[in-house]
Design a protein around this nucleic acid. Structure first.
Lengths: 104, 104
DNA sequence: TTACCATATCAAATATTCTTGATATGTGCA
DNA sequence: TGCACATATCAAGAATATTTGATATGGTAA
Protein backbone atom coordinates (compact mmCIF):
# COMPACT_ATOMS: atom_id res chain seq x y z
CA UNK A 1 0.00 0.00 0.00
CA UNK A 2 2.80 2.35 0.98
CA UNK A 3 4.45 1.82 -2.39
CA UNK A 4 1.31 2.60 -4.32
CA UNK A 5 0.68 5.79 -2.37
CA UNK A 6 4.24 6.84 -3.11
CA UNK A 7 3.86 6.13 -6.81
CA UNK A 8 0.49 7.85 -6.96
CA UNK A 9 2.11 10.91 -5.41
CA UNK A 10 4.86 10.83 -8.00
CA UNK A 11 2.22 10.72 -10.74
CA UNK A 12 0.09 13.39 -9.12
CA UNK A 13 2.00 16.31 -10.60
CA UNK A 14 1.16 17.33 -14.18
CA UNK A 15 4.80 17.91 -15.08
CA UNK A 16 5.84 14.51 -13.84
CA UNK A 17 2.92 12.80 -15.54
CA UNK A 18 3.89 14.51 -18.78
CA UNK A 19 7.50 13.43 -18.38
CA UNK A 20 6.35 9.87 -17.89
CA UNK A 21 4.29 10.04 -21.06
CA UNK A 22 7.23 11.53 -22.92
CA UNK A 23 9.40 8.65 -21.77
CA UNK A 24 6.91 6.18 -23.18
CA UNK A 25 5.76 7.89 -26.35
CA UNK A 26 8.12 10.79 -26.81
CA UNK A 27 10.14 11.46 -29.91
CA UNK A 28 13.81 12.02 -29.18
CA UNK A 29 14.57 15.21 -31.05
CA UNK A 30 17.87 16.28 -29.53
CA UNK A 31 19.68 12.97 -29.17
CA UNK A 32 19.09 9.31 -29.89
CA UNK A 33 18.90 7.51 -26.58
CA UNK A 34 18.95 3.75 -26.22
CA UNK A 35 19.53 1.77 -23.07
CA UNK A 36 22.61 -0.31 -22.41
CA UNK A 37 20.83 -3.41 -23.60
CA UNK A 38 19.77 -1.52 -26.70
CA UNK A 39 16.15 -2.34 -26.03
CA UNK A 40 14.45 0.59 -24.41
CA UNK A 41 14.23 4.04 -25.88
CA UNK A 42 14.59 6.93 -23.50
CA UNK A 43 15.24 10.63 -23.34
CA UNK A 44 18.02 12.89 -22.29
CA UNK A 45 17.66 15.79 -19.91
CA UNK A 46 17.87 18.49 -22.55
CA UNK A 47 14.93 16.93 -24.38
CA UNK A 48 12.72 17.33 -21.34
CA UNK A 49 13.89 20.85 -20.61
CA UNK A 50 13.26 22.16 -24.11
CA UNK A 51 10.09 20.17 -24.73
CA UNK A 52 8.41 21.33 -21.52
CA UNK A 53 10.15 24.69 -21.31
CA UNK A 54 11.53 24.16 -17.83
CA UNK A 55 14.74 25.35 -16.25
CA UNK A 56 17.42 22.86 -15.33
CA UNK A 57 17.00 22.68 -11.58
CA UNK A 58 13.28 22.19 -11.94
CA UNK A 59 13.72 19.23 -14.26
CA UNK A 60 16.37 17.83 -11.95
CA UNK A 61 13.97 18.06 -9.00
CA UNK A 62 11.14 16.28 -10.77
CA UNK A 63 13.38 13.59 -12.24
CA UNK A 64 14.64 12.84 -8.76
CA UNK A 65 11.08 12.44 -7.55
CA UNK A 66 10.36 9.99 -10.35
CA UNK A 67 13.57 8.06 -9.80
CA UNK A 68 12.99 7.90 -6.04
CA UNK A 69 9.52 6.52 -6.62
CA UNK A 70 11.07 3.84 -8.82
CA UNK A 71 9.19 4.97 -11.90
CA UNK A 72 12.25 6.05 -13.84
CA UNK A 73 15.68 4.55 -14.31
CA UNK A 74 18.60 6.78 -15.07
CA UNK A 75 21.77 5.79 -16.86
CA UNK A 76 24.68 8.18 -16.77
CA UNK A 77 26.41 8.60 -20.11
CA UNK A 78 29.46 10.68 -19.57
CA UNK A 79 28.27 14.04 -18.53
CA UNK A 80 24.68 13.32 -19.58
CA UNK A 81 21.90 11.41 -17.92
CA UNK A 82 19.59 9.23 -19.93
CA UNK A 83 16.19 8.40 -18.58
CA UNK A 84 14.07 5.33 -19.15
CA UNK A 85 10.69 4.37 -17.83
CA UNK A 86 10.75 1.52 -15.35
CA UNK A 87 8.07 -0.65 -16.85
CA UNK A 88 8.40 -3.07 -13.98
CA UNK A 89 7.23 -0.45 -11.47
CA UNK A 90 4.43 0.74 -13.70
CA UNK A 91 3.23 -2.82 -14.13
CA UNK A 92 3.46 -3.57 -10.40
CA UNK A 93 1.59 -0.36 -9.60
CA UNK A 94 -1.28 -1.25 -11.89
CA UNK A 95 -1.41 -4.80 -10.63
CA UNK A 96 -1.48 -3.71 -7.01
CA UNK A 97 -4.07 -1.08 -7.85
CA UNK A 98 -6.25 -3.73 -9.38
CA UNK A 99 -5.81 -5.90 -6.33
CA UNK A 100 -6.59 -3.05 -3.93
CA UNK A 101 -9.36 -1.30 -5.80
CA UNK A 102 -10.45 -3.58 -8.59
CA UNK A 103 -13.64 -5.59 -8.67
CA UNK A 104 -13.73 -8.13 -5.91
CA UNK B 1 -4.29 13.40 -18.70
CA UNK B 2 -5.73 16.04 -16.41
CA UNK B 3 -8.20 13.53 -15.02
CA UNK B 4 -5.55 10.98 -14.25
CA UNK B 5 -3.36 13.50 -12.48
CA UNK B 6 -6.36 14.50 -10.38
CA UNK B 7 -7.14 10.91 -9.50
CA UNK B 8 -3.51 10.13 -8.75
CA UNK B 9 -3.49 13.08 -6.39
CA UNK B 10 -6.61 11.79 -4.66
CA UNK B 11 -4.93 8.41 -4.21
CA UNK B 12 -1.64 9.91 -3.09
CA UNK B 13 -2.65 10.30 0.54
CA UNK B 14 -2.36 7.23 2.76
CA UNK B 15 -5.62 7.96 4.54
CA UNK B 16 -7.53 8.28 1.29
CA UNK B 17 -5.93 5.17 -0.15
CA UNK B 18 -6.96 3.29 2.97
CA UNK B 19 -10.49 4.59 2.74
CA UNK B 20 -10.66 3.42 -0.87
CA UNK B 21 -9.50 -0.03 0.16
CA UNK B 22 -12.05 -0.07 2.97
CA UNK B 23 -14.78 0.78 0.49
CA UNK B 24 -13.78 -2.18 -1.66
CA UNK B 25 -12.89 -4.80 0.90
CA UNK B 26 -14.03 -3.39 4.21
CA UNK B 27 -16.37 -5.10 6.62
CA UNK B 28 -19.29 -2.95 7.66
CA UNK B 29 -19.25 -3.25 11.43
CA UNK B 30 -21.43 -0.37 12.49
CA UNK B 31 -24.21 -0.49 9.91
CA UNK B 32 -25.22 -2.51 6.88
CA UNK B 33 -24.92 -0.28 3.86
CA UNK B 34 -26.26 -1.17 0.44
CA UNK B 35 -26.76 1.13 -2.51
CA UNK B 36 -30.13 2.15 -3.85
CA UNK B 37 -29.99 -0.56 -6.46
CA UNK B 38 -29.04 -3.01 -3.74
CA UNK B 39 -25.95 -4.05 -5.64
CA UNK B 40 -22.96 -2.31 -4.20
CA UNK B 41 -21.84 -2.53 -0.62
CA UNK B 42 -20.51 0.62 0.98
CA UNK B 43 -19.68 2.20 4.26
CA UNK B 44 -21.09 4.90 6.47
CA UNK B 45 -19.10 7.77 7.86
CA UNK B 46 -18.94 6.46 11.40
CA UNK B 47 -17.33 3.28 10.13
CA UNK B 48 -14.46 5.24 8.63
CA UNK B 49 -14.05 7.46 11.67
CA UNK B 50 -13.85 4.61 14.16
CA UNK B 51 -11.87 2.25 11.95
CA UNK B 52 -9.17 4.80 11.16
CA UNK B 53 -9.44 6.75 14.41
CA UNK B 54 -10.04 10.11 12.76
CA UNK B 55 -12.09 13.07 13.89
CA UNK B 56 -15.18 14.04 11.97
CA UNK B 57 -13.96 17.09 10.07
CA UNK B 58 -10.90 15.21 8.94
CA UNK B 59 -12.95 12.38 7.47
CA UNK B 60 -15.28 14.92 5.90
CA UNK B 61 -12.35 16.65 4.22
CA UNK B 62 -10.90 13.47 2.77
CA UNK B 63 -14.24 12.15 1.61
CA UNK B 64 -14.83 15.38 -0.25
CA UNK B 65 -11.49 14.99 -1.98
CA UNK B 66 -12.42 11.48 -3.06
CA UNK B 67 -15.88 12.49 -4.20
CA UNK B 68 -14.52 15.51 -6.10
CA UNK B 69 -12.05 13.27 -7.89
CA UNK B 70 -14.94 11.04 -8.90
CA UNK B 71 -13.58 8.04 -7.03
CA UNK B 72 -16.39 7.84 -4.52
CA UNK B 73 -20.13 8.19 -4.80
CA UNK B 74 -22.12 9.37 -1.82
CA UNK B 75 -25.75 8.66 -1.14
CA UNK B 76 -27.49 10.60 1.61
CA UNK B 77 -29.69 8.47 3.83
CA UNK B 78 -31.53 10.73 6.16
CA UNK B 79 -28.95 12.30 8.36
CA UNK B 80 -26.28 9.85 7.29
CA UNK B 81 -24.08 9.63 4.22
CA UNK B 82 -23.29 6.33 2.65
CA UNK B 83 -20.20 5.97 0.51
CA UNK B 84 -19.58 3.68 -2.42
CA UNK B 85 -16.58 3.24 -4.62
CA UNK B 86 -17.08 4.48 -8.17
CA UNK B 87 -15.83 1.47 -10.04
CA UNK B 88 -16.31 3.29 -13.32
CA UNK B 89 -13.70 5.91 -12.41
CA UNK B 90 -11.28 3.33 -11.06
CA UNK B 91 -11.61 1.35 -14.27
CA UNK B 92 -11.20 4.41 -16.47
CA UNK B 93 -8.15 5.49 -14.48
CA UNK B 94 -6.44 2.16 -14.94
CA UNK B 95 -7.32 2.03 -18.61
CA UNK B 96 -5.98 5.52 -19.24
CA UNK B 97 -2.89 4.70 -17.21
CA UNK B 98 -2.27 1.70 -19.38
CA UNK B 99 -2.75 3.79 -22.48
CA UNK B 100 -0.42 6.54 -21.22
CA UNK B 101 2.28 4.48 -19.55
CA UNK B 102 1.76 0.90 -20.58
CA UNK B 103 3.87 -1.00 -23.04
CA UNK B 104 3.68 0.52 -26.46
C1' DT C 1 46.00 21.08 -15.62
C1' DT C 2 42.15 24.43 -17.03
C1' DA C 3 37.95 25.52 -19.34
C1' DC C 4 33.57 24.14 -20.24
C1' DC C 5 29.31 21.84 -19.99
C1' DA C 6 25.63 18.89 -17.67
C1' DT C 7 23.57 17.78 -13.61
C1' DA C 8 22.89 18.02 -8.43
C1' DT C 9 22.11 20.41 -4.38
C1' DC C 10 21.07 24.18 -1.36
C1' DA C 11 18.53 27.89 0.84
C1' DA C 12 14.86 31.02 0.57
C1' DA C 13 10.41 32.25 -1.19
C1' DT C 14 6.01 30.71 -2.52
C1' DA C 15 2.25 27.63 -3.03
C1' DT C 16 -0.41 23.85 -1.77
C1' DT C 17 -2.27 20.49 1.28
C1' DC C 18 -3.58 18.76 5.70
C1' DT C 19 -5.23 19.13 10.42
C1' DT C 20 -7.87 21.07 14.04
C1' DG C 21 -11.46 23.31 16.81
C1' DA C 22 -15.34 26.16 16.28
C1' DT C 23 -19.41 26.95 14.13
C1' DA C 24 -23.04 26.29 10.57
C1' DT C 25 -26.27 23.45 8.12
C1' DG C 26 -29.44 19.88 7.65
C1' DT C 27 -32.24 15.90 9.12
C1' DG C 28 -35.31 13.16 12.10
C1' DC C 29 -37.87 12.79 16.14
C1' DA C 30 -40.29 14.04 20.43
C1' DT D 1 -41.32 24.01 17.56
C1' DG D 2 -36.97 22.60 19.84
C1' DC D 3 -33.54 19.10 20.78
C1' DA D 4 -30.16 15.74 19.31
C1' DC D 5 -27.25 14.03 16.13
C1' DA D 6 -24.62 13.75 11.51
C1' DT D 7 -22.15 16.14 8.29
C1' DA D 8 -20.18 20.49 6.08
C1' DT D 9 -17.61 24.49 6.20
C1' DC D 10 -14.51 27.97 7.91
C1' DA D 11 -10.35 30.16 9.55
C1' DA D 12 -5.88 29.57 11.38
C1' DG D 13 -1.83 27.06 11.91
C1' DA D 14 1.28 23.25 10.67
C1' DA D 15 3.30 20.49 7.47
C1' DT D 16 4.76 19.49 2.62
C1' DA D 17 5.73 20.45 -2.01
C1' DT D 18 7.30 23.29 -5.65
C1' DT D 19 9.99 26.89 -7.82
C1' DT D 20 13.96 29.72 -8.34
C1' DG D 21 18.71 31.51 -8.51
C1' DA D 22 23.14 30.54 -6.76
C1' DT D 23 26.56 27.45 -6.13
C1' DA D 24 28.72 22.77 -6.01
C1' DT D 25 29.95 18.47 -8.18
C1' DG D 26 31.49 15.64 -11.73
C1' DG D 27 32.69 14.50 -16.41
C1' DT D 28 35.01 15.66 -21.18
C1' DA D 29 38.16 17.50 -23.95
C1' DA D 30 41.74 20.77 -25.21
Amino acid sequence: MVDNVRIAKALSDPIRYQIMMMLVHGEAKCCKVTSEDGERVGLCNCEIMTELGLIQSRVSYHMKELVDAGLVIEEPRGKWKHYFINTETVRAFMEQLNQDLGES
